[in-house]
Design a protein around this nucleic acid. Structure first.
Length: 239
DNA sequence: CCAGACGTTGTT
DNA sequence: GTCTGG
DNA sequence: CCAGACGTTGTT
DNA sequence: GTCTGG
């Protein structure tokens, strides 16, 4: 995903306080937020609502190490209420994960010559999106330190994203934020009603540089159009 | 009782 | 931590 | 998600 | 092929 929006704007949009401003200042604008890296989350706590940084990949409380979260980067909306790794977080650890956009890939060709063409999926009006998320605290038994981690809730893709992939993040409307983020709300039916695909006209696809494919790459150049090559399929999905 | 799993995605 | 399987 | 690793022993 | 790391 990308996160270029300044945290002060995120705090204003979500009516939240920044938990650790220096940590955000150290990160700066981000064009390639990958699993295991810090992601922004908006969490409702007893003493207020905060923007925090959590490790992307939920580490369940029972885990033996943080690596347990390496693949728990998404939680299926269809099963999140009952599956052991996410159930407790669905009940009491819901959060909002702000992001400017997310990437999906299209495989062009097969075998050795295949390229993975990344697309940035972002709001047509380019405002930040609010993913539904879940988070959990995990205490490292070795150091005693607490690790906060989070996962993105997914649902079936809408028609726009469906050109690339069968799944997409749940994107909440502003009227839904207080419901999803409130840990006092327990009605599973009310919560599950929020977990549906975004409307088809919310999002736009933009072909971007294959530099995105390596999590070590960063910077605004990742969003430049990919260099065309002979025999390429059209880069706009509508040709 | 103890031991072991606990997840999603894409691809075939 | 809690559930499932043996 | 994609990229990259995937191993042990003994010797320097 | 499958797992780990980012």
């Amino acid at each position: 995903m990308t996160m270029r929006t300044d945290v002060s704007d995120v705090a204003r949009i979500f009516d939240a306080e920044v938990r650790d401003p220096q940590a955000f200042a150290d990160l700066g604008p981000r064009y390639n937020v990958a699993p295991t890296q810090p992601i922004e989350v908006v969490v409702q706590r007893e003493d207020g609502r905060f923007v925090e940084l959590h490790r992307w990949g939920l580490v369940p409380s029972y885990a033996k190490g943080v690596s347990a979260g390496n693949r728990l980067i998404n939680a299926r909306a269809e099963t999140i209420a009952t599956t052991p790794a996410f159930r407790a977080s669905f009940a009491r650890g819901r959060c909002i994960i702000p992001a400017d956009g997310f990437y999906e890939w299209r495989r062009d060709g097969n075998g050795k010559g295949a390229r993975k063409q990344p697309f940035l999926i972002h709001a047509a009006n380019d405002r930040p999106l609010a993913f539904a998320g879940v988070w959990a605290p995990w205490k490292d038994p070795a150091s005693g330190e607490w690790v906060l981690s989070a996962a993105v809730v997914t649902t079936r893709a809408n028609a726009t994203v469906g050109q690339l992939h069968t799944r997409m993040p749940v994107i909440l409307e502003s009227s839904e934020w207080p419901i999803w983020a409130d840990p006092e709300i327990r009605d599973p039916g009310l919560l599950n009603d929020l977990l549906r695909p975004a409307s088809d006209d919310l999002l736009t696809l933009t072909a971007v540089s294959p530099l995105v494919n390596n999590a070590n790459n960063e910077g605004p150049e990742l969003l430049l159009a990919p260099a065309p090559r002979a025999g390429d399929p059209p880069l706009t999905l509508f040709g």
